[in-house]
Computed example of a mutant assay.
Amino acid sequence: MADNKQPNQKSANEKSKDPKKGRIVIFSSIVVIILIAAIAAMIFSNLHNNEAKPKKKQPTHRTEQMTRIDYTGQPFIGSSNAPVKVVEFADYRCPYCKEFEENVIPDLEKDYIKTGKISLYFINDPILGPGSVLAANASEEVYHQNPKAFWAFHKAVYDAQKSEKEQWVTKKLLTTIAKKTVPSIDIKAFQNALDTKSRQNEVDKDTSLADSLGVPGTPVLFVGDQMIENGQDYTVLKKAIDKALAENK
C-alpha cells in the first residue's frame, strides 16, 4: 500500500525562509557593530580633543600663596621705597579699566602715592583681541624708550578709548598719541615696534604672569601678592591697602 503522506508543508516553508532570516540577522549584526564603532570613535575623539586643549588653571589658595609678582621692568608711579605695592592688570580696550583710570587712580594718588605709602604698578593683560595686543606693544615700546613718559602715553590711550565694539586701536592713532605725549620718542623705532611686534616678548611675560596668578579678567588689583576681589571699587581697595600698611609697620 503506497504511502499517501504529503511532505510536511510547514517544515518546507521554514526551510525556504531560513536564508532570508540569516541575512537579516547578519545585516542587523553589522549595523550594531558599525554603531558601536562610531560611538567608540566619538568617545576617543572627545578625549583626544580635551587632551589637546588644556584648560586654563583656576586659581587656588595654594597657587595664590606660592606665586609672587615680579615687579622688575614694570612701569610704576610713586616711591620705589613705598612699603606697599599695588598692581593693576589691565587692557587698554577695557571700559572698566578706563573707569578705574579716571575715577580711582586720582584718589590713590592723593591718599597714598603722593604720601609715599604705596607704589602703583601697571601690567598689561590684553584679553580683548588684536587691538589690545597692539596697544600693549605700543606701551611697552614707549616704556622701553622713555619710562618717565610712559604714564602720559598710558593716560592718552585711555582718553582715546571708544566703544568695545569698535576696532579703534590703530597704528596711526598710537603713533599720533606717541608724538604728542613723548616728544623725544624715536618715531621710526616706535613704528617698527608696531609693525613687527618687537615688544611681544614683554607682553607675553605679562600675560603669563597674569595666568599664573589666576587673573580672571580686567581690571584686577593686587595689594602685595594678594588679589583683591572687587578691587576696582575704591572703598574695597582702600580697606585692603590700609590693612597691608598696618601689617608692614
Rank of each mutant, 00 (worst) to 15 (best):
residue 132 S to R: 02
residue 241 I to K: 02
residue 96 Y to S: 13
residue 103 N to T: 11
residue 132 S to G: 08
residue 111 D to V: 07
residue 78 G to H: 03
residue 174 L to H: 01
residue 76 F to V: 06
residue 2 A to Y: 13
residue 96 Y to A: 14
residue 234 Y to L: 11
residue 204 D to G: 07
residue 94 C to R: 01
residue 125 D to N: 15
residue 167 Q to K: 11
residue 217 G to I: 04
residue 75 P to A: 05
residue 146 N to S: 10
residue 97 C to Y: 01
residue 101 E to F: 04
residue 158 Y to I: 01
residue 110 K to A: 12
residue 141 E to M: 13
residue 50 N to P: 09
residue 81 N to S: 13
residue 61 H to P: 13
residue 135 A to M: 01
residue 179 K to N: 03
residue 153 F to E: 00
residue 142 V to M: 03
residue 44 F to M: 13
residue 104 V to I: 14
residue 236 V to S: 09
residue 216 P to W: 01
residue 160 A to I: 00
residue 51 E to H: 11
residue 41 A to G: 11
residue 155 K to R: 06
residue 36 I to K: 08
residue 23 R to M: 15
residue 240 A to K: 06
residue 23 R to Q: 15
residue 232 Q to H: 14
residue 118 I to E: 03
residue 210 A to Q: 05
residue 68 R to H: 09
residue 136 A to T: 07
residue 29 S to F: 13
residue 45 S to V: 13
residue 219 P to C: 12
residue 172 K to M: 07
residue 117 K to R: 06
residue 110 K to T: 11
residue 100 F to N: 09
residue 127 I to W: 04
residue 43 I to H: 04
residue 69 I to E: 00
residue 137 N to R: 06
residue 238 K to Y: 08
residue 148 K to P: 09
residue 55 K to C: 02
residue 228 I to H: 02
residue 137 N to H: 05
residue 18 D to S: 15
residue 1 M to D: 14
residue 4 N to C: 14
residue 166 E to H: 03
residue 145 Q to G: 09
residue 34 I to E: 08
residue 24 I to S: 13
residue 207 T to R: 10
residue 42 M to Q: 11
residue 54 P to G: 01
residue 193 A to R: 07
residue 140 E to R: 09
residue 81 N to T: 09
residue 102 E to W: 00
residue 209 L to M: 12
residue 106 P to Y: 10
residue 202 E to D: 15
residue 186 D to V: 11
residue 226 Q to I: 12
residue 208 S to E: 12
residue 68 R to E: 10
residue 81 N to F: 10
residue 107 D to Q: 15
residue 83 P to G: 03
residue 128 L to P: 05
residue 234 Y to A: 09
residue 124 N to L: 08
residue 12 A to K: 14
residue 185 I to L: 08
residue 23 R to P: 13
residue 95 P to Y: 02
residue 76 F to Y: 12
residue 89 F to D: 05
residue 113 I to C: 05
residue 9 Q to I: 14
residue 188 K to R: 12
residue 159 D to M: 03
residue 35 L to E: 03
